[in-house]
Computed example of a mutant assay.
Amino acid sequence: MVGCELSPIFCRRNPMGAIIGVIIIAIVLIAIFAPLVATHHPTLDADFKALREPPSSAHWVGTDNIGRDLYSRVVHGSRISLFVALIAVMVGDLFGAVWGVATGYIGGKFDTYSQRVLELMMSFPTLILAMILVLVMGAGVWTVIVAIGFTRVPLSVRVIRSVTLSVKENAYVDAAQAIGASGSRVMLNHIAPQCVAPWLVLATAHLGSVIILEASLGFLGVGVPLPTATWGNMLGGTVAGGLVPHWWMVIFPGLAITITVLAFNLFGDSIRDALDPKLRGRT
């Protein structure tokens, strides 16, 4: 009921955010119903008489180096890219949120040791850390999800920890402790709910970053293995096929990445504005 009441308010106060939300829903629906939206099979329907063919009535956005329909591969690639992004963000940010609440509330040596571990994790560039994890664990969809989710943990812990340190100084937390509530109950019932809003903003912001990270891994050849279509390995295969790739083999996968990442980033900004009390009432 609360969501139904907030939706018209959100649309009225932030029309751009509502439009971006519709675009995101459309992208997700395309990914879910990719077999119905695509015109060809992404891997099996290879037309060897139409290698590297430019956009035409038969192939709307052209074909790749072995004659596969590029439009169908972009559509099916959205399934893997969005699936990896959503699961990696959920796993990484959720684990980071739990860790952040615990380290911020418990404090002491646990907090000190946690910060040193996080500093060690953040000392590696994100892409390098993800590549190392994928190379150690082996190629695969779930391997990429685990590797990317692992890179989301440090920032999630830092953000949620800072919120926890602020929330635990409130009087209602002291009151809960005074009546004998356990630490786990205080964290679950009184601190965690106050971290939901910043977590939502962080998760939506991470979605765009994760899509780029997954595409980067695929471009470098260490992401989801071929012949599975992803936006990243489509770009990587195009560049590997020649020094000067054909424009349609670069433009359309790159455009899919750009539109999706931009949509998630703008939607994250809209959620932040909607949840920020200082910005309420503004258009």
Results as ranks from 00 to 15, higher is better:
C4E: 06
E5R: 13
P8H: 09
C11Y: 06
A18I: 08
V22S: 13
A26M: 13
I27G: 01
I32P: 08
A34N: 03
A38E: 01
P42S: 09
D47K: 07
F48E: 00
P54R: 10
S56R: 11
S57Q: 11
I66S: 13
L70F: 15
G77I: 14
F83V: 05
A88S: 15
G92A: 10
V98K: 02
W99F: 12
G100C: 08
V101D: 02
A102K: 05
T103C: 03
R116W: 10
T126K: 05
L129T: 12
I132G: 04
I132N: 00
I132D: 00
V134T: 08
G138T: 04
I148S: 03
R152Y: 02
L155D: 03
S156P: 06
S156G: 09
V167L: 02
E169T: 15
S184M: 07
M187H: 11
N189S: 12
I191T: 11
Q194S: 07
A197T: 00
P198E: 05
H206D: 12
V210I: 12
I211N: 05
F219H: 03
V222D: 01
V224K: 02
P225G: 14
P225Y: 08
T228Y: 09
T228I: 15
T230P: 13
W231F: 09
V239W: 15
P245M: 03
H246Y: 11
I257P: 00
I259W: 06
G268D: 06
D273E: 06
L275A: 12
G281N: 04
